[in-house]
Structures are given as structure tokens and as C-alpha cells.
Design a protein around this nucleic acid. Structure first.
Length: 416
RNA sequence: AGAGAGGUGUCCGAGUGGUCGAAGGAGCACGACUGGAACUCGUGUAUGGGGAAACUCAUCGAGGGUUCGAAUCCCUUCCUCUCUGCCA
């Protein structure tokens, strides 16, 4: 959630910043007015309650002293009605406010480039040069077929479309990658964590998936519980509604989880192959940091993810997302895109975001700074998407006969 | 899943309708004592919101209700513990 006080006091500046993300001015105008309205109602309500409290105390005194209470009683009854009506007004105003506020995206960082969609993203640098093939490099599903690595059809049978089965060496490679990523992240100072794959409504709201993106989530029938779309949700919310000590920061966490997404808006996209599945494995990094340090940590996380690809000798590039392509909660995002020779293009394999205080405000994660409680900054990033790394390995390490060489660095994770 | 017990501040723990944002203790902070420390003594010590401040509102797991007034009574719900069941 954005800072409503800031919006109120610096309206023009705030709207300018959000325009970069394509947010409508009139919506912000309404949000500002709702905020003002709610504050006014709350002031009246508070005053009425203060009167009530005072009179109630008097009531007790009168009774003890044996005084007549009928006059006081009628005053207090009247005031009670006033409170009830103001309370109703406040509730209505508040839910209207929340409806808007929870759907407003985060401010983009000043450094974020202008642009409307992914075509306006800015390439920062390329790492490693794609290999020259003296044959036509195959797409990963062709290689999967040749090696018997991925069973798309039976995956669909077990669940529905966009589910698949890894068999044999590919399944072991998947597991090897998870271990490799977790180990490398740990070496960078991230604490390994194992979390629930089902989280409740509040947590999903805390990190920004709800209420706006409920269509993308798998919900447990009859419960306010959801399959997590990313480990960012449980990891970040570990400290939901807590006040941390300054010395605890930064907190660096990493976890492997499967991720579940409905992919509601992606009908027809990447239907072939394993690029876009309803269930996929990911190793995630999350950081909770002092506001002053989040930029430094952000850069460290980008570097860490990039190093993982470099260690796997996978060519990739770093891309800074433009305002229009930035996610809902993100203030700044750098994507890592890995080279897929079969597709002859770079594809996203990691996304690292600094949400600044946006999620912290929603999830009420604060730290003690002297006497004051301050919102901390939260960051998240994949290190890495496992299934897509598997694809990248298949396509980049393929031989002419369709076999795939296992990257050296993974050998020790596969050989028992 | 069934039966019972219980959820109070950083922690332990008292509190069954008003003087309770909450006794007492521990811890912590500051001060006194000391060459320095321990002990001892004194003072202070929850969170969130509005406000420049005075002040004020809310919060005793959460949400509703009764009442002029709720930590205390009622309802719903979540969680913890014990026993039974079931498992990994």
C-alpha cells in the first residue's frame, strides 16, 4: 500500500510518480478525498466516544453517591445513537478507502525508465556469449521427447493442461538444481527456510497478491487458504505484524517451494512445452532490510542470481523493467533473461524486485529505530526458477543427436 | 476428527461488570551507592491511530453482541495444551 499521508500532502508529486506506472489520476484524486473524508468522520467519532467514556465514568460515580441518573441516562443514550451512526459512516468510508488503496500499485523508483510495456525495458548488460551451433538447435520439448524427460500428456491426465511430469534424469536434474541454488544462496548469507505451501488471505494481501489478483491463485475450497504463487509470500510474511529490532536487519532468507499459478491472463501463450505451467519449482530469495540499505541489498541479490547462471555457464542478460512493465508491488525490478538457442531468444528466468515499504505497510512489518517504529523494506527475487533453468540447460547443453550434457558444476549433485 | 482445559504487557502471573491499559514478580533502561562491579534502593518501562502539543480513541488471541459502562457476561472463530482416534 502506498503512504496515504504522503499522497495527501504531495498530491501532484505522487500522481506524477504513479503516472509512470499508468495509474489513472482520477482514481488517486478519489483516494485522496476518501482519506480526507475518513479522517473527518473518525475525528467526530472519536469525540463522541470520548464523551461517552466521560459520561460512563460519571454514571458510576452518581450511582455510588446515590444521585439521580435519569437525566444522564437519556443524554448517554442519545450519544450512543450518535456513535452508532458515525461508526456506520466510518465503516463505509473505510471499506471504500481500502477498496481503492489496496488496488493502487507501488510508486516506481526515480531511476525506473519510462515505457508502457516490455518492449520499453532497458537492457543493462549481457553476460556470456551464446554458443555457436553447427546444427539447428532444438527446442526443449523436442529434446524432452528424444530423452524421455518430460511427459506432457500424462501430466495433463493427472491434473489438467499446463501440468507435466519429469522422469528419470530430468527429475534428478530438477532436484540437483534446487540443491545447488539453495547451497549457493546460503553461501551468500541467506538462511535456508522451509515454509507452508498454503497461506491464508491475510498473508496474500500482505505481499500484494490479494485482493487484486485473486484470479491468478488456486484457492482451497471452503477455506480462506491459497496455494502460494511464489515463496515470496510465506517468506516475507514470516514477520507479518511484527516489530523487529534494528540489529536483526537485514534478514536474508531463501527457500525452495513449488509455485502454483492459474495463469488466467495467459491463454494461448507458451502453451507448448514447460515454460508456463500451473505448478513450477522455484528457489526464492527474500530480504528484509533497513530502508537505507535496500538498494545495496537489491544489487547484491541481482548479482547473486546472475552468478548462478554464470556458474551454470548459461548466457543471459540483465534487463531493467520500465514503469509500464513493473509489477504491482515493485518499486524497481531487474529481470534476468536466459538465452534459449532453440527459441533463439532470451526468456525470463529470474525477477528481482525492491518493493521498498509497500509490502511492509500492508503486512505491518516494522523495526524499532530508537523510540520510533519504522516500516522496513522488503525485497524478493528468484534464484532461480528451476523449471526454466532445466529448459535452459537442455537447450544450451544439447548435442546434435539430441542428448544433453550435464553441466560440470551439477555433477556432484547428481552422482550419489 | 471427538472430549476437556486454556489464550492477559518483553516474560511469568493476578484479575468474574465501573476507581483496570491492567496488581505482583522477573527482565530491561536510567539514577543513587562503589575504585569498578554484584547486591541494595529509587524512577521508568506495551502497541497502533488522530494531533504541533495538550490531549484523545482503540487494543487483555480475532470478530460480533449485551450494557450507560466489558479483560470480566453471551455468540462465532482461530490458536495452544491434555486425553481418545488417525496417521508420516
Amino acid at each position: 500500500m502506498i503512504d496515504l499521508k504522503y499522497l495527501e500532502k504531495n498530491f501532484d508529486e505522487a500522481t506524477n510518480r504513479l503516472n509512470k506506472k499508468g495509474v489513472d489520476n482520477s482514481l488517486l484524486e478519489e483516494l485522496k478525498n476518501r482519506f480526507k473524508e475518513l479522517k473527518e468522520i473518525n475525528n467526530q467519532l472519536e469525540e463522541a466516544k470520548a464523551n461517552q467514556n466521560r459520561m460512563s465514568k460519571l454514571f458510576g460515580e452518581y450511582k455510588r453517591e446515590g444521585k439521580d441518573i435519569s437525566e444522564l441516562k437519556s443524554k448517554v443514550d442519545k450519544n450512543k445513537e450518535l456513535i452508532a451512526s458515525l461508526q456506520d459512516k466510518a465503516n463505509v468510508a473505510n471499506s471504500k478507502l481500502q477498496n481503492i488503496a489496496l488496488n493502487i500499485p507501488n510508486f516506481p523508483d526515480e531511476s525506473v525508465p519510462f515505457g508502457v510495456d516490455e518492449d520499453d525495458n532497458v537492457e543493462i548488460k549481457k553476460v556470456l556469449t551464446p554458443r555457436e551451433f553447427n546444427f539447428r538447435p532444438k527446442e526443449h520439448w523436442e529434446l524432452a521427447e528424444i530423452n524421455g524427460w518430460i511427459d506432457f500428456q500424462r501430466g495433463v491426465k493427472l491434473a489438467k493442461s499446463r501440468f507435466s511430469i519429469l522422469r528419470g534424469e530430468s527429475a534428478r536434474l530438477e532436484r540437483a538444481l534446487i540443491n545447488f541454488f539453495l547451497n549457493e544462496n546460503r553461501k551468500m548469507g541467506f538462511e535456508e527456510v522451509y515454509v507452508p505451501f498454503i497461506n491464508n488471505y491475510n498473508m496474500l494481501q500482505g505481499t500484494g497478491q490479494l485482493p487484486k489478483f485473486s484470479d491468478d491463485l488456486f484457492k482451497i475450497e471452503g477455506e480462506e487458504l491459497y496455494l502460494i504463487p511464489t515463496a515470496e509470500v510465506p517468506l516475507t510474511n514470516i514477520y507479518n505484524n511484527e516489530i523487529l529490532k534494528k540489529e536483526q536487519l537485514p534478514i536474508l532468507l531463501t527457500a525452495y517451494t513449488p509455485c502454483f499459478r492459474k495463469e488466467a491472463g495467459s491463454a494461448g501463450r507458451d502453451t507448448r512445452g514447460m515454460i508456463r505451467q500451473h505448478q513450477f519449482d522455484k528457489v526464492e530469495m527474500v530480504a528484509l532490510s533497513l530502508p537505507e540499505e535496500s538498494e545495496k541489498i537489491f544489487n547484491m541479490m541481482v548479482e547473486n542470481a546472475s552468478n548462478l547462471l554464470t556458474k551454470l555457464k548459461l548466457p543471459h542478460r540483465l534487463v531493467e523493467l520500465c514503469g509500464g512493465d513493473l509489477g504491482f508491488s515493485a518499486s524497481k525490478t531487474i529481470d534476468l533473461e536466459v538465452w534459449l538457442p532453440g527459441q533463439n531468444r532470451y526468456r525470463e528466468i529470474s525477477s528481482i524486485s525492491n518493493t521498498k515499504d509497500f509490502q511492509a505497510r500492508r503486512a505491518k512489518i516494522r523495526f524499532k529505530d530508537g523510540k520510533k517504529n519504522r516500516l522496513l523494506h522488503t525485497l524478493n527475487g528468484s534464484a532461480l526458477a528451476v523449471g526454466r533453468t532445466l529448459i535452459a540447460i537442455m537447450e544450451n547443453y544439447q548435442n546434435e543427436d539430441g542428448t544433453v550434457t550435464i553441466p560440470k558444476i551439477l555433477e556432484k549433485y547428481i552422482i550419489d
